[in-house]
Each structure stands twice: as C-alpha cells, then as structure tokens.
Design a protein around this nucleic acid. Structure first.
Lengths: 207, 207
DNA sequence: GCAGTTGAAGCACGATTGTGCTAAAAAGAC
DNA sequence: GTCTTTTTAGCACAATCGTGCTTCAACTGC
C-alpha cells in the first residue's frame, strides 16, 4: 500500500500558511505559489491536498470560523457558570466579547483572516455559504449573551435590536483595531465595551 | 495650441468607472484594462490622465473620502441649526449617521468603495495617508456630534470613549449592511441607531 | 524482491496584470 | 496649409496566476 502521512495535519499546515499570508499580505496574495512557499512545499504538493485554489481558500475560511466560533461558545459557557451581575460574570462577558477583537497575536491573525474572507464573500460566491454560516454562529452566541444580560421582561424585538447593536459595535471595534491600531488601542476597546455594557444594563432602568 | 479637453471632467469619468467596478467586482478587479473598458476608453488613454495604476486608485480613494466627508459636514451643519433635544434635532442626527450607511444606491457605492480602500490600506502603504485622513475627518465630525449630544459636564475621556463607540457601531452597521444585507436591513439600521442614541442620552441620567 | 498506491514536484499553457515605449489622430496657432 | 501640442491608442515585455498533465521518489503489503 501507499506511503502514509497524516493528511489532516498536512492540510492544517497548509491552512496555517494561508493564515500567515492573509494576515501579513492580504487575501489577494494567498496564491498557490505563495502558499506553497510559505508552507515549504511545491505547488504540486499543495494541489495534492486541495483540488483547487478555491477549495483551499474555502477550507481555510471554514477552519477560521470553527476556531472563532469554538472560542466564543467556550466563553459563553464560562459566562453561564457565573452568577449574573457578579464581578466574575462581568469579567467573563468581557472575555467573551474580547474573543472577537485582535487583543493578542493569535486572535489578531484569526479576526484578520476572518474579516478578509467575509469581505471577499461579497464578491466571490464560493465564500458565501461559509460567510452565512459564520454570521449565524456568531449572532447565535451574541444573541444568547444579550438574553443573559437583559431582563426577561424585555420584548423580543428589543432583544434582537440589542443583539445586532452589540454585534455591530464588536465588528466596528474589530475593524478599527485592525485598520487604525494607532487610535484603537486595547485599552480603548475595553473602555468602549464597558460603556456599551453599562448602556445595556441601564436599558431596563429607563423602561 | 493643442486639442482642448476638460481634463478634470475626464479624470472624474475614469474615477466613476473605478467606483462602479469596485462596487460590483471589488477593488482587486479595478485594473487599468477593466477601468478603461468601463469608462469606454483605451488603456493608453487612462494612463494619459493617471501616471500609474496606483495614482488612479489613490486619487479615487481621495475623491470618495471628500464626498463622504462633505456630506457629513453638511449634515453636521444641519444638526447645529436645530435645537438640541427637539424632534427635528433628533431627525437631523439620524440623517447624519445615515450618511455612513448604504441606505440608498449612491451611498451604497460610496461606502463600499470607501471600505474597500480602507481595508486595502492595511496592506498597501500607498493608501495609508488617505486612510488616516479619512479616519481623522470622520472621527472629527462624530466627535463634534457626541459633544453636542452629551451634556457639557461629561469628562473628556468619556466623550472620547463615546465617540469611538459611536464610530465603531457605525462602521459595524455599515459592514453588516454591506456584507449581510439580508439580515441588516435599513429598518434594522435605524432601530440600532435609535437604541444607541437613547443609550447616549441616558448616560448622564445614570451619572 | 516486487508491485502498486500515494506523496511530492515540476512543466507548459493561456489569461491577466502594470508599465515603458511608440505612433497616429485631432485641433488651435500662425 | 503647416506646425505644435495634446489626446488617444496600441504594442511588447516581464511577472504572476490557476490548472491539466506528467514524472519521480517513497513506502506499504504481499
């Protein structure tokens, strides 16, 4: 029989190379030749594991979505294990929201790649299904979080609006942190999130 | 002397072609040949008005910034002419914030092109100066608006945080409206903005 | 040892890109 | 009409891209 290699691990190596290239040089530079160079392989070898350039990129998109969604769901579980209103709960919520921000090197690469694929999905239809899945996954977690943070008495449409508002603020923060890192520092991210959460908590006090 | 043409108008025609291509096919498709085709010219003709591809794109970036910033500043003037707290003032504020959202075809093209160049500026240094100018211009208007909306008693750092928060929410809304237009409808944009403004107004009531 | 499957690598082709350069056409100045 | 300058157009070259196809090495099962 054949030469046996861990195909899954090799594929992941190539995907990691894709991530590094996108983070440093953008999605448009993630060509087969560049990816092969970065992964230390030949073009033909990369094409052995991925039938086409599109398949490689779509799979990379899928991987980064799973990574981010996985972190979000784990963080949501941590939030659920804290008593609502407690300082630990507040901290867990901040930790969850921070998963979508480039607060360290690893997350910076992830959200950068994530944003690159999502914006590319507007043009390239191959990315559209994964982009929709990505949006559903993140919106689900943020929706659950908003339901935890707001009193049950709130009407459904207010919950939806607040979830979309939190999601928009998060994406905007992420965008600014990636594009204008001089202005949008980690400290400013936290301040904005704190202010937003204070505004959320104050919602029901105004009726 | 020579054949006389309105060089400025011709340049604007080419820039308009660039906008259409970026809005429909993305920045990476805005090559000289595509732009020339879209403008009904030959490549050599386009190159007569723009020395290089970079100059064309940077100039296009500059034009879209001026358009958006111009609309924002005009809208800010309208806000200033209304009594703070009045319904007309509220409506003028919503109109200002809506200038950054793809609520009609014209603004959709503008913000789409704007976002494309800003994200490209992370990678291509030629775009960086204009991206910084863009950020300063928009942040200045939003900052002025926040100063109008919040009581003078607020501390400086709270004003800054709230300005960045509003800016982030706006950019996030814009991103969602462009990328996930099925979920982020014009109605949802308005609801989110209303909720955000209510949260802003409620700030000083909580101290 | 042999055979057969898989991994790894590379060639070649057409398409697309930016750009240096050339050349023809157009129109006001004389 | 002739000259001059702008405008418009096009060619050619190197670089890059995805991909069909072939080739060679490696390693397992017998």
């Amino acid at each position: 029989m054949p030469k046996i290699v861990d195909a899954g691990a090799r594929r992941q190596d190539v995907v990691d190379a894709v991530f590094r290239i996108i983070a440093s040089d953008g999605l448009e530079r993630a060509s087969l030749r560049e990816v092969a160079d970065e992964a230390g392989l030949a073009v033909g070898s990369v094409r052995h594991y991925f039938a086409s350039s599109d398949e490689l990129l779509v799979h990379s998109f899928s991987v980064v979505i799973d990574r981010i969604a996985g972190r979000l769901e784990a963080a949501l579980e941590s939030v659920r294990q804290e008593a609502p209103g407690s300082p630990a709960h507040h901290e867990a919520v901040l930790l969850l929201l921070g998963q979508l921000l480039p607060l360290d090197e690893e997350k910076a690469v992830d959200v950068c790649v994530w944003l690159a694929f999502r914006t590319a999905a507007r043009i390239k239809p191959v990315f559209a299904p994964e982009a929709a899945r990505s949006h559903r996954a993140v919106a689900a977690v943020v929706g659950q979080l908003v339901m935890q943070l707001l009193p049950d008495s709130e009407q459904q449409d207010i919950l939806v609006t607040e979830a979309e508002r939190l999601l928009a603020t998060l994406d905007g923060l992420c965008l600014h942190a990636l594009l204008q890192s001089e202005w949008m520092t980690a400290r400013m991210c936290r301040d904005v999130l704190e202010a937003h959460l204070a505004g959320l908590g104050g919602l029901f006090q105004r009726g």
